[in-house]
Design a protein around this nucleic acid. Structure first.
Lengths: 264, 264
DNA sequence: CGACTCATTGACGTTCCTCAACCTTAGTGG
DNA sequence: CCACTAAGGTTGAGGAACGTCAATGAGTCG
């Protein structure tokens, strides 16, 4: 799955190139990439104005404060969303995997409120903001897919809150790895062997701990036999064990009267 | 601002009552509550099928795992979103203030992935999910407002990540208070005097620290002269000082080459 | 090869979690 | 009305966890 169709045209740009394609194919791909049903796209002959854009490793897709010009959907690769805190500290907000929406937060301000950089060679679908309304009206399937993607993004925020609960750093890391694993599986990659594209420092920033602590937690999980760790190449050996580890809270247990489960 | 129009009808329900109103007024209010321009709503005579629902303190609006039936927009009051972790720990995901969207995460699964309870007497607009698509098509202004609200929700997630950065507990609390202050101002209430509706334990759960630590951090900020704290009644005395406090990271400073600011 | 970044590991000091006691407030029943 | 209980909040003491500083090694690039 996720095979890459040929990229036509080569209008060069600052940090990559742009591919203007007015074809139905691209729209269909985009909807599929978002996890929607691209069965019925209607037969409108309107040019879709959707393009592709490639971002090289460490190159920015978006810069904090820039005016919002487009919506993006990651087609392949990995992105990192960061915000420069006023004192110069670089806070990682999230990592984007294929099929995920990027840059939607900017809508309500009209300006990007975070920078986005590529952690590896990446390709995004570009939907010019001026066209989004029209596209959503003309292609209900796209509209549907975008709403679902937004819903997923909000659910990600919820699972992020769970990751940041009052637990030990090793538990946070375990949750992070399971979270990455699940999302990479959804993106069509192996849930078992993770090739993390981000540095320890990036993970530490996201998890709210020191990067040395992340390193130690990796070693700890590896010593427990749950993982093998070779730099950024991580293999999950025992999913159940890792899940069990991810569940352990610091406090013994509090009495709660709910039970219905619903794992993100 | 935010004056409450009369509530008609009284079809009683489990934990409050439901008010079916097929009036243009309600739709206009909803759009305004979401921060949109309700100027042009068109002249469609279709009943809007939007209703109001009241939730009493500590009563649930949504239960984790329940099938998704509607979208909700908070009209007045304060809500708490919680998720019961599999080991019985109750993780707070967020607090919803007036004008905010609730329950949209459920869309992609069709089931609620968190419970929502009221922290005080609250009223929500109810948009039956079966009607949302039609309403969005018929009332572009509503569609617009919903998209903006979604964008804001995603931005909240980003500022949450900033709150959870690797900083001291007192800094996290300062950021939380400033965050609440800004949102309450947006909801038409005083940004200076905060009447927190949630317990220390709830705040602690959201911030990922022990509740005793939250209590100590409150005392610490009060001793610094930045706040007065009387149980859940908090008054911010020096905004600048609190903001400065909220900026202090643990690590001295890292060299970063960005500067463009954009506070959520 | 040297300069740089990244990752790991150790030692030490601080923060924060844990357990505990205590106080206030609210609700209940004698 | 008061005793009793329960829940929320504050504060203290001790210990575990984590941040900080530092040294080392591996990998990359010019």
């Amino acid at each position: 799955m996720m095979q890459q169709p040929p990229l036509q045209s080569h209008a060069t740009r600052a940090s990559g190139w742009t591919v203007p394609i007015a074809e139905r194919t691209l729209l269909r791909e985009l909807v599929q990439s978002l996890g929607g049903h691209a069965g019925e796209l209607g037969q409108s002959d309107i040019a879709t104005s959707i393009t592709l854009r490639r971002i090289r490793p460490d190159a920015p897709l978006l810069l904090e404060g820039a005016p919002m010009q487009a919506l993006y959907v990651l087609r392949s690769g990995v992105l990192k969303c960061v915000k420069a805190l006023e004192d110069g500290y670089e806070q990682v907000l999230s990592f984007a995997l294929p099929g995920e929406l990027v840059g939607f937060e900017a809508l309500h301000l009209g300006r990007q409120c975070a920078s986005v950089v590529a952690l590896q060679d990446s390709i995004v679908y570009v939907l010019p903001i001026s066209e989004v309304r029209r596209l959503r009206r003309v292609f209900p399937a796209l509209d549907e897919a975008l709403q679902l993607a937004l819903s997923r993004q909000l659910a990600h925020a919820a699972s992020f809150a769970q990751m940041m609960a009052a637990v030990g750093a090793d538990v946070r890391l375990a949750r992070f790895l399971l979270w990455m694993s699940a999302r990479m599986a959804k993106a069509g990659q192996s849930p078992r062997r993770l090739l993390l594209r981000m540095s320890r420092r990036d993970i530490a920033s996201l998890l709210g701990v020191a990067h040395e602590t992340v390193s130690r937690s990796f070693s700890q999980l590896a010593d427990s036999g749950l993982l093998t760790v070779d730099n950024r190449d991580v293999e999950i050996l025992h999913f159940d064990g890792l899940r069990r580890h991810a569940l352990s809270t610091r406090r013994p247990v509090e009495d709660v009267h709910k039970s219905t489960a619903c794992v993100g």
